[in-house]
Design a protein around this nucleic acid. Structure first.
Lengths: 140, 140
DNA sequence: CTCCTTGACAAGAATCCTTCTTAAGTAATA
DNA sequence: TATTACTTAAGAAGGATTCTTGTCAAGGAG
């Protein structure tokens, strides 16, 4: 997601704006986040356009769709292998660039062809840390 | 989720049926899956009852809510720490009982108070393996 | 240059999943 | 068995996403 150009998709003002917004964005925005952020610049842009564009970018491998926020898609323009630190209170997502060895034996994979992995850490971020409340599952 | 009894919640026929259905279930069903499965037995049961019951069970630590299926909640009655192998085609989820060391330094956590973690492996299951199609992100 | 094809757009309808509201019902307890 | 608080069913409501439709713009062929 570093250059705003692509020979595989038609570049329209809307798409350029979305890609610029995503470039370097570490907030893992939802479709609505993107939509709202570009409202001023493109008052007539449809939310469907955001979804369409994200779907296109996803298929091209320019963004990764995250399912860390139940009931909401969020997108990560950083396609380098990395993991996430998720605040269970405010849903903030921090990137972690640590490489963990995650070996699986053939017996454990049970015929699955492994293509990738994702590690999510759950916790309370610094900002939310002042008012802890509920006990959380330690593994899911 | 091994015994169908609980002193912290009122046991109704619907709840007993849901708990029995979940007991030993490794399919990680969604609310709708549970609802449909119990339709014959409880034709009048509301989907809201399934959601209510799952919320109650979740708060009691009897099930874990998974967000592996975008836009859909799925539940895991196995509350032992374990990880998942997810088929990107048919959304089948297999449990893996392997313990990976996932050390994070204070610098990496950036003030986050880590409460738990989750490792998801993505791939193609044996059944879907016959007709591979698209290239997948190796890490998300 | 003009026609034609293709893809992208906006707008809103439709759908899916989940939560909320309300009135009626029922399990737990004494 | 009576009380009480919790649970239920039903449907409305809400949020997120997808679909449909008609319009529009860009690029290629003639």
């Amino acid at each position: 997601m570093s250059d705003v150009s692509n020979k595989n998709m038609k570049m329209t003002p809307q798409r350029i704006a979305i890609m610029k917004y995503l470039d370097g964005n570490t907030a893992h925005p939802s479709a609505a986040d993107i939509y709202v952020a570009l409202q001023e610049q493109f008052p007539t842009m449809s939310l469907a356009t955001v979804y369409n564009t994200m779907e296109t970018l996803k298929q091209q491998g320019a963004v990764v769709e995250l399912s860390i926020d139940p009931g909401k898609k969020r997108f990560d323009p950083n396609t380098q292998p990395h993991h996430h630190l998720i605040c269970i209170k405010c849903k903030t997502v921090l990137d972690i660039f640590v490489d963990f060895p995650l070996p699986l034996s053939d017996r454990e994979t049970g015929g699955f062809q492994i293509l990738g992995n994702r590690v999510d850490f759950y916790g309370i971020c610094k900002t939310c840390g002042d008012t802890p409340r509920e006990m959380i599952q330690t593994n899911r």
